[in-house]
Simulated scan of single mutants.
Amino acid sequence: MAVRERFEHDMKSVQENLMELCKKSIEALEVSFKAFIEKDIDLALSIIDNDVYINRLEEAINDRVILLIAKQQPVATDLRRLMTMVKAASDMERVGDYAVNIAKETIRIGKEPFITTVETLEQMCAKTTSMLRQIIEAFIDENTTQAKEIAELDDQVDDLYGQTISHLMHLSSVKPENVSQIMYLSFVSRYLERSADHATNIAEHLFYLVKGQHYELNN
């Protein structure tokens, strides 16, 4: 196998690892939120246990990229692609971490009934996971137009987050005895909002890959 052909084969393999990481992280977020809604402690514990696989995938991507850079000394375009994959892997690993954090809040709440509706949280989760799936598709296709549209959806998640926090702050004043659960719910809301931010980050990484410049898509 020629040197260039081998390099492209190895880069494709790294991208496959990245897609696996993305798939597992998004699934973890969805399953963790399901455990939260259903108060399924065993399911929440499984998310925490399975996070090690996501972490190892990110480590493997980082190690393989470092090895490729050291051995192949890639040209500017290839180097940009490799570094973009490293950054995207870091963002998706963080989504996996937020799934773990939601699982921990689920365990803290336990079987205690929710003191308020969690409808806005459900909307946040649906929008966030949709954004993450769409940005991965855009990343594969190197579709910057789609990436920009996805990044703009982050405003909707931010609005829902603002509504949720305002509502929970009000509850804390009228139901001070429930301050612990109010805090746990606010954390879940924050983890979903941050996960959506990582979708925007990946959109920005894609612009850097395609355009060779840094863009801030959602200030």
Rank of each mutant, 00 (worst) to 15 (best):
V31H: 08
I41Q: 11
D49A: 15
R64W: 01
L68R: 06
I54D: 02
V31E: 13
E58F: 12
S32Q: 04
I47T: 10
F36A: 01
K34P: 00
I54W: 05
E58S: 08
Q72L: 00
F33E: 03
I37E: 15
L57V: 07
E59Q: 13
A60K: 14
C22S: 12
E27L: 10
E58L: 09
K71P: 00
K24I: 05
A70L: 00
K23M: 09
R64N: 14
D42N: 15
K39C: 00
F36V: 00
D40G: 00
A44N: 05
D40F: 03
L57N: 11
N55W: 10
K71I: 00
S32P: 07
A60G: 11
K39F: 00
I26F: 03
A70R: 00
L29S: 03
D40L: 04
I26R: 09
Q73E: 09
E38M: 06
K24T: 06
F36T: 01
S46T: 12
P74R: 03
Y53D: 14
K34V: 04
L29Y: 03
E58P: 04
I48Q: 10
I37D: 08
L45G: 13
D63H: 11
D42W: 07
Y53A: 14
A35I: 07
E30T: 11
E38R: 07
I41F: 04
A28H: 06
S32Y: 06
P74C: 01
Q73C: 03
L67A: 12
C22I: 15
L43Y: 06
I37V: 15
N50H: 13
D49M: 13
I26L: 02
I47H: 07
I66C: 00
E38D: 13
K24G: 01
C22M: 11
I54V: 11
Q73W: 02
N62V: 03
F36K: 02
A70V: 01
I37N: 04
V52P: 08
D49Q: 15
Y53N: 12
K24N: 13
Q73H: 10
C22N: 10
L67W: 08
D63G: 08
S25P: 06
E59N: 13
D40W: 05
E58Y: 14
R56E: 15
L67P: 00
Q72C: 02
Y53R: 12
K71S: 08
I37L: 09
I26M: 06
V65D: 05
N50T: 08
I69V: 12
I61T: 05
A35L: 04
S25W: 05
I26Y: 04
K34H: 12
I66S: 01
A44D: 07
L67T: 12
L21N: 05
F36N: 06
R64I: 02
D40Y: 03
L57F: 11
I66E: 10
I66D: 09
K23D: 12
